[in-house]
Structure formats: C-alpha cells, structure tokens
C-alpha cells in the first residue's frame, strides 16, 4: 500500500523561483536563502519519494474570480507551468499520478470532503517553487524526479478554510493514500508563508517570533495550533500570511509522533519570511 513517510513545510516566494531561473542564486542577497536548502536537497536525494502530494495555493493564475473552489484536486495527466504575467517559468511540465489522484478524489468525497476535481489546470509558482528549492535547477526539457498530485486551496478570497478543516483534511488524505493499493513512498507538502504582507500601507510586515512559534508548535501542539482563528494570521503574520493554514493539511496527514530533521528560517526573500521544515514520520 502507499504510505506517507515525510512532511515538508516550505515557503513558495515567487522571487526565489526567479532567482533560480535567472541564475542569481550566488548573489549575496540570495546566498543565505539557498544555503538553507542545501541540507534539504541532500535529504531529498536520499529519500526521494515516488509521489509528492503538494498542498499549495493559486495566486489568481489558473483560477480567476469567476470560480473560487476552496479545495481543488488536480486530476489531469499533467500540469503546465503558467504564465503569471512575466512568461512561464522555464521548468519541466509537472506530471501527475493520475490514477492515484482519482482514487484520492473518490476517497475524500466519500469521507465527506467535497473537493473540486480539476481535469485541466495550469500551475503557478505556488507549486513549482517548492519543487525547485527541493530539487535544484532542472532544465525545462528535463523531468521532475517525482510525480506530483496538486491540491489547490483558496487563500485569496476570505475566508480561507479553517486550520481545523485543513488539519482534518490532512487526516482524510492520509486515509485515502493508505487505501491505495500500490507500494508507493509519498511525501506531503504544506506550502506558503511565512509572515508577509504584499499589499497596501502595511506591506512588508514580518513577525519572526510568531513564525518560529508556529514552527515549534507543529511538533509540540499541532492540534492547538490548528485552532488559531483567521484574524490572528491576518494581524500577526500579515494579510498574505494566512497561507499558513495550508501547513495544517500537511501536519494532519502525519503521525502524532514525528521527528524534525531540518529547519530553516530567513528574512527576507523579497517581501517574505522564508520558513522551511522537514518532518519524518516515525516508522
């Protein structure tokens, strides 16, 4: 059967992707960011999964204002990197484990999580930047070393799903994955954040104390953490910091007992605090 062996939390700042695409990663501004992912890339090589279940959000790219699904599961055979206004990122097309994605969709709906099924979808930096930081530069005509099942979460129009809902969805995703009858190693990603505000006069807000407390509580108090009301994210972590609800999906899909094998925190990447953490499930 398929099994989840690790969970990864990761910011998905678009400028990180741009720095990689333009070959600027050795500039003094970017060096500390990519240094923080050196250990992650080694770990990724040693533990490369068959399938990545990627929880991310679309930034008004694949979804315009006409249709705003709270949870949308990518069930297409593949997903093209989208043009977000500057031209598409020069990274490989993202390939799905389509049969497993369909199984997960069916399992989630019967488990009373009424998700939207996407049979065509482009993916933006929210999905491709975490792949890039974990795998390094891969040419456009190359291949990502894992299949990817995308779960797109609305965090643009208030309200995003609650942390509690996300945490429990993680548990349902785990049940879905573990009921899939193929021997597959699966990693689950929660992406976005950490503290950042991109808009209006408070733009540039960063709250390292809040961010590090969030990272700590993923291990020490994940259920309590999942109860945090939206207004606290918006006030303490910035209006775009509410992306952090997606990390609860990742955490909910893991065992109660986990081992933190890597953590990295850095300010800034563009407007944003970069947070990254790797958890292994206890065997």
């Amino acid at each position: 059967m398929a099994r989840i062996t690790a969970g990864i939390g990761c910011s998905h700042v678009p400028a990180i992707g741009v720095a990689m695409d333009l070959g600027n990663t050795h500039e003094p501004y970017w060096q500390p960011v990519f240094k923080g992912f050196e250990k992650s890339r080694e770990w990724q090589k040693e533990n490369n999964p068959d399938v990545i279940f990627m929880v991310y959000n679309d930034h008004c790219t694949a979804f315009d204002a006409s249709c705003i699904p709270t949870f949308a599961l990518g069930c297409a055979a593949e997903f093209q990197p989208a043009d977000e206004g500057f031209g598409p990122r020069p990274v490989p097309v993202v390939k799905n484990h389509q049969k497993m994605a369909s199984h997960i969709a069916q399992s989630l709906i019967l488990d009373e999580f009424d998700i939207t099924i996407m049979n065509e979808m482009e993916v933006d930096h929210g999905l491709t930047v975490p792949l890039s930081v974990m795998y390094g530069e891969i040419p456009q005509d190359g291949e990502w070393p894992a299949l990817v099942i995308p779960l797109c979460v609305n965090v643009v129009q208030y309200p995003a799903p609650t942390g509690n809902r996300c945490y429990n969805l993680g548990k349902a995703i785990r049940r879905a994955i573990e009921s899939y009858d193929e021997d597959l190693n699966v990693h689950i990603y929660g992406t976005g954040g950490m503290s950042h505000q991109l808009q209006y006069k408070r733009a540039g807000l960063i709250n390292p104390e809040w961010d590090n407390d969030f990272l700590d509580r993923l291990t020490t108090d994940p259920v309590g953490l999942s109860q945090m009301p939206h207004v606290e994210y918006l006030r303490e972590a910035g209006s775009e910091g509410v992306e952090m609800v997606m990390w609860h999906v990742m955490r909910g899909a893991l065992n109660d007992d986990i081992t933190e094998v890597h953590r990295f925190y850095h300010v800034p990447a563009s407007n944003t605090a970069v947070g990254h953490i790797i958890f292994e499930n206890h065997a």
């Binding site: 501004y29 503290s195 505000q197 808009q199 209006y200 006069k201 408070r202 733009a203 540039g204 807000l205 960063i206 709250n207 390292p208 104390e209 809040w210 303490e236 300010v267 800034p268 563009s270 407007n271 605090a273």
Partner: peptide
Amino acid sequence: MTGMGVEEYRKMMVEGGRPI
C-alpha cells in the same frame, strides 16, 4: 503602495521588515 519608494522599502526588508 507603502509610499516609501522602491529603495527605502527594499532596505527595510533587508533589515528585517516592518515590525509587528
């Protein structure tokens, strides 16, 4: 948007961003 201008804003971010 902040009215700070590009250079001053970038400097604020490099120095740790806008405090809470």
